[in-house]
């Protein structure tokens, strides 16, 4: 397998990846927030929330979605297992 095959260039159906990449980049463009800024936002969010409740910081996911005309910032923030939390907080 050469370099081009590995990265998928030359393989057919590249239109599909074009469309997927476009959809992703447009979500960020339209919402006016770059993937990098979203990372910063995520780190700050983790900091704030951790002050109040213990969370699984590694598993936190912040995503931008669009349903019909509504852009949405979706945060999935799993809490640390209950046993662990009892030990550390309260």
């Amino acid at each position: 397998m050469n370099f081009f095959q590995k990265v998928g260039i030359g393989r057919s159906r590249s239109a599909k990846s074009a469309k997927e990449r476009l959809q992703l980049v447009l979500i960020h463009d339209r919402a006016g927030i770059s993937p990098g800024k979203l990372e910063t936002l995520k780190d700050e969010l983790i900091n704030v929330i951790s002050r109040h409740i213990e969370i699984e910081t590694e598993a936190v996911e912040i995503t931008l979605t669009k349903e019909r005309d509504q852009h949405r910032l979706v945060a999935d923030i799993p809490l640390a297992p209950i046993r662990k939390r009892r030990h550390t907080i309260s």
Partner: peptide, 14 residues
Amino acid sequence: RRGDMLGTEDVLDV
């Protein structure tokens, strides 16, 4: 046709 260029439908979708 061979899937290597965005078609009209794709562009209108996005």
